[in-house]
Nucleic acid binder design. Sequence first.
DNA 1: CCGTTTCCTAACGAACCCCTAACGCCCGGC
DNA 2: GCCGGGCGTTAGGGGTTCGTTAGGAAACGG
Lengths: 233, 233
Amino acid sequence: MKILIADDDPQILRALRITLGARGYEIVTAHDGRTALAAIVEQHPDLVMLDLGMPNLDGLAVIDSVRAWNSVPILVVSGRSGASDKVEALDRGADDYVTKPFSIDELLARIRALTRRMPTSGDEPVVTFGDITVDLPAKTITRATAAGPEHVRLTPTEWQILELLLRTPGKLVSRQALYAEVWGQHKMTDTGYLRLYLAQLRKKLEPDPSRPRYLLTEAGMGYRFAPDAPPPA
Amino acid sequence: MKILIADDDPQILRALRITLGARGYEIVTAHDGRTALAAIVEQHPDLVMLDLGMPNLDGLAVIDSVRAWNSVPILVVSGRSGASDKVEALDRGADDYVTKPFSIDELLARIRALTRRMPTSGDEPVVTFGDITVDLPAKTITRATAAGPEHVRLTPTEWQILELLLRTPGKLVSRQALYAEVWGQHKMTDTGYLRLYLAQLRKKLEPDPSRPRYLLTEAGMGYRFAPDAPPPA
DNA sequence: CCGTTTCCTAACGAACCCCTAACGCCCGGC
DNA sequence: GCCGGGCGTTAGGGGTTCGTTAGGAAACGG
């Protein structure tokens, strides 16, 4: 269980790192909004503890940016105790709001309550569709042909994209989410290289690359992996 | 959206019923633990607001009983402000904890935060009507036909409109609100393209597009999503 | 140092989506 | 019965997004 703690007070940062680390959580820290956002993109924490009053990028702005593509639980820890502050943070997408000073036991309990709700990432390590078999942990792909199994090679970037699509079968993955996960939040200027990699993936995986059956495009929205058997409703 | 309010103070009960009812929530009340539990079993609320200090069956005991078989979001509203009380309630399965006296705006925001993440009482992460099943987060729509499930594709603008309508089932959404949410305040010159998208949505979703049953027009006012009448439990 | 692999930029036709415009229908007011 | 407003429907142009190809920069490994 990985937790990102974003706060501009190094003392609080250190105290929380020690306390939460002792509970078995893996801790990542950030001291301002920009680094917090970068850490979320690159580290994939299971929960984010966010201070509102941070330099470089306000906590509320961080919430907006994250919620545009990611649904990781966000726990706001702030010195502002006004109701309007809480309402704004919660309505922008935060899941809980704790005011400083806080009880460490209560904080831990709220962390447990939030992570308990997390979608149990039902990782099926092997995905098959058509004549293709993808082994995600082993990073291997084989195509079953009449002449026997045949190995398919993918570049690192191709793997990242394919993994994102296969991880949520049937669900649409927004272009924004793909860019954020693969290249980082800053590289959001869409000059169109996603199209290139999708073309590459289709060329390597689709039975008929000119008419995609598994890696589908949703114009204006993103891409979707359509499995053979419809996912459990 | 149905909310159960369980509290032994009739004054609080009445105030909350009025306040939440005005926000469009359907309200069910209980004055002690036993009736609260019965109401959860029979009424299937989408969220439970629970007081801890109730006669007949303590709030903590109610949480235990509910969590043994149901995952409905539970928001504890209690006069006990001690950290140990919060920890115990949260660890037994409550999702949030607010102490009296509370700000009504904060309470509403926390209700929104909880219901936002829990798609309809944990049973269905989707909205269904007629032979249509809509999965909002996955941006997926399937039509159940005799020949099997069939995928329906929507454009981004169609999604935005449908999402607004489905978010408040049965309630009227003014044309103003639709224009503001989808296009922004500047595009208020109603030349009538909303009609186009409604026609598209009906063509794709209604069993008989010429006689709408779910996406209804309120002349001069706006549009309304009319859900199926729930079968008598 | 060189060859290979991978990544990115640029450009162009095609497909798709959004919006304008126009017409017909229904309904209530005069 | 006439008229006008609001709504549903259809057709088509303009702009955006997508697929594809080609080629050069950058990174990697020997």
